[in-house]
Write a protein that binds this DNA or RNA. Structure first.
Length: 190
DNA sequence: CGTTTTTGACCCGCGC
DNA sequence: GCGCGGGTCAAAAACG
């Protein structure tokens, strides 16, 4: 396939907003992101995610067992943007290592790993079925090296983000700290 | 010809 | 214990 330039589609119409709390994540229509993270949504007015109870075929979020990632304390965060291309150019070099059809989702989810040796950062990309114009990008981990390509494109994205205080998440919660740190390091990445 | 993508198999946690 | 859903591996194909 050809390499598109990943540019921001409609700059003015999409005002990203961050939401957080575990709630926000377990409820999205496509069953996208696991619990306990931050999401950044490219929506203007509305509060993204975080609404009705179990949307999909059903697992009531049980607080009991945390998954691997949470135990390992690997920070994650996600944002969605309006884009015709799935993969945004964020300045890093990625290798795709998988693609999977997700249960109630119209579009497959793609898995990428950072090329740089020793860097364990991954990201997932999925287009929403509820709004085909929206692409959700989920990052896992923090790069321990500078960007390897141009960072203009991603700075464009970042400049549009608006960070909101977390909803229900207590500030003493460690995961909140981690998440904040991640966002911070993203905003100030090399 | 080296590198990346594709794609089904495999693996693993979790709920029933 | 088994099946399902989601994440990863790896061989082969595709790419430049």
């Amino acid at each position: 396939m050809e390499s598109h330039q990943a540019l921001l589609p409609s700059p003015s119409s999409s005002l990203p907003s961050i939401l957080s709390s575990s709630e926000a994540f377990s409820k999205d229509p496509d069953g996208l992101l696991p619990r306990k993270e931050l999401a950044v949504a490219a929506h203007a007015g509305e509060t993204p995610f975080r609404s009705h109870p179990e949307a999909s075929g059903g697992s009531p979020p049980s607080q009991k067992s945390e998954n691997k990632r949470e135990k390992k304390n690997i920070p994650r965060f996600a944002f969605q943007t309006r884009s015709v291309v799935d993969v945004l150019d964020d300045g890093y070099r990625w290798r795709k290592y998988g693609q999977k059809a997700v249960k109630n989702a119209k579009f497959p989810r793609s898995y990428f790993r950072c090329i740089h040796q020793g860097c364990i950062v991954k990201k997932q990309i999925q287009r929403l079925s509820t709004d085909e114009g929206l692409v959700v990008t989920t990052y896992e981990g923090v790069h321990n090296h500078p960007v390897e390509k141009s960072k203009e494109s991603f700075e464009n994205i970042l400049s549009q983000m608006q960070i909101y205080p977390s909803f229900g998440l207590p500030h003493k919660d460690s995961s909140y700290q981690t998440v904040s740190l991640t966002i911070f390091s993203m905003l100030n990445y090399f």
